[in-house]
């Protein structure tokens, strides 16, 4: 397999698994943020938004410490699997989930906040429990926002660089994603390869963002 294909596959698996993990809990978290009047809500929302403002290297540094064999995450992982978490694919997934979290939660929370809450009351008096309302009203009503959030997570994970460099290193077939491969190619002055890698990333990003904005377009009235 070529270097580009290997890095492409690693990137693809990383983005897919990260997106699946995120979409399994981000909607619930976003719903809580949109509905909660708890005093801790702004703090939680700030923590989720952190990756947007912190340099990826800062996030990466703390994650690296946590993932070290004597770190909190690293020790637990070592105990469970017998392998170190830092510089592994699993470690990358953990880092990506944290790093892409705001990209899943924020658009969903925004969509949830603008929802017609009157519909929830209507569902309630028709006998729907809170869980029922979330599963059968909130989620289906926001199908497009979910698609947009998932595509954004996927795209953002593909575009990740700093954090991967810090916690993943550059192991071919394990942690070398496209953005890292591109960096290597440029460092080694292999511009022809770099062109190919850059083009793949560019086109992929355009396609994904087009999906995001198509999904977010106001729905036509039928």
């Amino acid at each position: 397999m070529t270097e580009l294909a290997t890095a492409g596959l690693v990137t693809f698996f990383l983005a897919t698994i990260t997106t699946l993990v995120l979409m399994s809990f981000a909607p619930l978290l976003a719903w809580w943020l949109a509905r909660s009047r708890s005093r801790t809500q702004p703090l939680i929302e700030a923590l989720i938004a952190l990756p947007l403002v912190l340099p990826p290297t800062v996030m990466g540094f703390y994650l690296l410490l946590a993932m070290a064999p004597d770190g909190l995450l690293g020790a637990a992982w070592m105990q469970a699997t017998g392998r170190p978490l830092a510089f592994s694919f699993a470690g990358l997934v953990v880092g990506s989930v944290i790093y892409s979290l705001p990209f899943a939660v924020q658009p969903l929370a925004a969509a949830f906040r603008s929802m017609d809450f009157g519909l929830l009351d209507a569902a309630t008096v028709l006998g729907a429990s809170p869980r029922d309302r979330f599963l059968y009203l909130v989620l289906p009503l926001h199908r497009r926002a979910m698609i947009a959030a998932a595509a954004l997570c996927f795209a953002h994970t593909i575009g990740e660089f700093g954090i991967v460099l810090m916690i993943g290193g550059n192991i071919e077939g394990e942690t070398r994603v496209l953005s890292i491969a591109l960096f290597d190619q440029v460092e080694a002055l292999r511009y022809a390869d770099a062109h190919a890698t850059a083009a793949v990333l560019l086109i992929l990003s355009i396609v994904l963002l087009t999906i995001v904005y198509t999904a977010q377009r106001p729905r036509e009235r039928t």
Partner: peptide, 20 residues
């Protein structure tokens, strides 16, 4: 008693049909 377990039914001014 949580509202969804109360034996009431309600009709709202604006109908509130589920659009999806």
């Amino acid at each position: 008693v949580p509202p969804h377990r109360r034996s009431v039914s309600m009709v709202f001014q604006d109908g509130r049909l589920f659009p999806h």
